[in-house]
């Protein structure tokens, strides 16, 4: 009888979380889905009608749509490439014996705690500004023409900023994984005459591969939603050159007042995110069984 009592109590304790998250998940999503089938403009809210798949067709035929999908992919893949390779290199470096390791670690992880608007504005104005930025100062020092980063390479500049924010995350997680590598194994490999490269390929890579997977998947989830960095630097421009899918949806919804179109875009974003989520859940789920 005691067990039944505990089960009831357990259910009671879980109920608030489950109910809240259930409402949070279902209600807005259902509304988005419903809106995506409507002609619904906030400037003309009295005139709402059923649109069928028109919004999807509209979104799909908009040239900005494919550009924004492409930009989203370039942004995600570019940042992943920089942070994963840089993260492995940095983690390997920080795992070595050195003086002041604790302070080095603190310096390296700091960018992760900087809020996105600060990170983006500091890079935009103090580092990459063509007149007063540090990059411009360096260029002038060497007698070169300063680069107007956000006008000439808008998406690349945003990738640099976002990569700076996420490199610490990748480094920290990979370093944690590295440090759990058995020291005796490393010594044994060294005694058997394995050099740095073969130790890296046969010992380190297999050991951290799971952590790398986790880094890639978690970052992808966040990178698919990059927003503030674009808002405060390029505002999506020039043209649509740095507009990603979230930014296009925001533009359609709150600047174009097109509820239906933005909702159709939202559903497309959900589908994209779900493809990634599927793999992440499998990776995390495996760990739960252990």
């Amino acid at each position: 009888m005691a067990t039944r009592q505990t089960t009831t109590l357990a259910r009671f304790m879980m109920a608030p979380s489950v109910i809240l998250l259930f409402i949070w998940m279902i209600v807005p999503l259902a509304m988005t889905l419903w809106f995506s089938f409507l002609n619904y403009n906030l400037l003309n809210p009295a005139n709402v009608s059923f649109a069928g798949l028109f919004n999807y067709k509209f979104f799909y035929t908009d040239p900005a749509f494919f550009q924004s999908i492409w930009n989203t992919l370039v942004l995600v893949l570019g940042v992943l490439l920089i942070t994963v390779i840089g993260g492995i290199a940095l983690a390997l470096l920080l795992d070595q014996p050195m003086f002041g390791q604790g302070i080095v670690r603190i310096l390296v992880i700091s960018p992760f705690f900087v809020m996105p608007p600060v990170a983006a504005l500091v890079w935009k104005n103090m580092i990459m500004h063509p007149g007063y930025g540090v990059f411009a100062d360096i260029a002038k020092f060497f007698g070169a023409q300063p680069v107007d980063w956000f006008a000439q390479y808008p998406l690349f500049s945003i990738i640099i900023i976002v990569a700076w924010q996420w490199l610490p995350f990748a480094t920290l997680i990979l370093l944690t994984a590295l440090q759990s590598l058995d020291g005796e194994q490393k010594e044994a490999a060294e005694m058997d005459g394995a050099g740095f490269v073969s130790r890296f390929i046969y010992l380190t890579i297999p050991h951290i591969s799971r952590a790398v997977t986790v880094v890639i998947l978690i970052q992808t989830i966040f990178l698919l939603g990059v927003y503030a960095e674009i808002l405060v630097t390029t505002n999506g421009g020039p043209g649509y050159a740095s507009t990603n899918l979230p930014f296009l949806i925001y533009r359609t919804a709150l600047l174009g007042y097109d509820v239906g179109g933005a909702s159709a875009g939202g559903i497309i974003a959900v589908i994209l995110a779900n493809i990634v989520a599927f793999f992440l859940m499998r990776a995390v789920g495996k760990n739960l069984d252990k």
Binding site: M25, P28, M31, I221, P246, I249, L272, A273, A277
Partner: peptide
């Protein structure tokens, strides 16, 4: 239940911007 809770975190914020707003 734990996995389901995690899955709610995967929902992109922009997807529900309009209804929440």
């Amino acid at each position: 239940i734990l996995m389901w809770m995690l899955s709610t975190k995967m929902m992109p914020a922009v997807a529900v911007l309009v209804p929440i707003y």
